[in-house]
């Protein structure tokens, strides 16, 4: 499935390992939150770099002690109409200051990507949009009322920055 990150198509070097499978000991893998919290302390004893895949009901606060060295957080969208992932992303980026890769995985469609990007996602794994469509989606708006994780100044603020 194509992975689009920072406006480019990139190779996906990561593999998600579900809880019933043992990682083979090397490489870049993402695991569920419970497994991550259990394995993270043992990470360095094995040749594995761990990322985490959150489901929409996970509590992102549990990652707080680990955010500084987490290279990747995936947030799963089981169905594109499930909007919980947007809140998780905003919490991780804006409240907890997470700066690593935040990747949307699962049912990711072109017309949700602008909101995802505003909420803090910088990578999108999507079977339903190619690079040009993603770039087009990201350029559909030039002004935003609310502050969000993308750091755009709000319209509320921009109105008062103009030299009069």
């Amino acid at each position: 499935m194509p992975l689009i990150k920072n406006g480019c198509v990139v190779d996906n070097e990561w593999t998600f390992i579900d809880d019933s499978t043992d990682p083979d000991g090397t490489g870049l893998v993402t695991v569920s939150l419970p497994r991550y919290l259990q394995d993270v302390t043992r990470e360095r004893t094995r040749n594995v770099t761990l990322g985490v895949r959150l489901t929409p009901s996970d509590d992102p606060d549990l990652l707080l002690p680990h955010l500084d060295h987490l290279p990747l957080i995936e947030i799963e969208f089981p169905k594109y109409t499930d909007g919980r992932g947007y809140s998780l992303a905003q919490i991780l980026r804006r409240r907890h200051g997470y700066t690593g890769e935040l990747r949307a995985v699962g049912h990711v469609l072109r017309d949700q990507i602008l909101y995802m990007n505003r909420s803090g996602f910088d990578a999108f794994e999507t079977a339903r949009a190619d690079l040009s469509q993603v770039l087009e989606a990201l350029s559909e708006h030039s002004a935003y009322y609310q502050p969000a994780a993308d750091g755009h100044p709000t319209v509320f603020a921009r109105r008062h920055l103009r030299p009069d």
């Binding site: 499930d82 909007g83 947007y86 905003q90 909101y115 909420s119 009322y145 609310q146 969000a148």
Partner: peptide, 10 residues
């Protein structure tokens, strides 16, 4: 504020 709020569209 609520127009195109990115967190609350779904």
């Amino acid at each position: 504020w609520s127009t195109f709020h990115p967190e609350f569209a779904f």
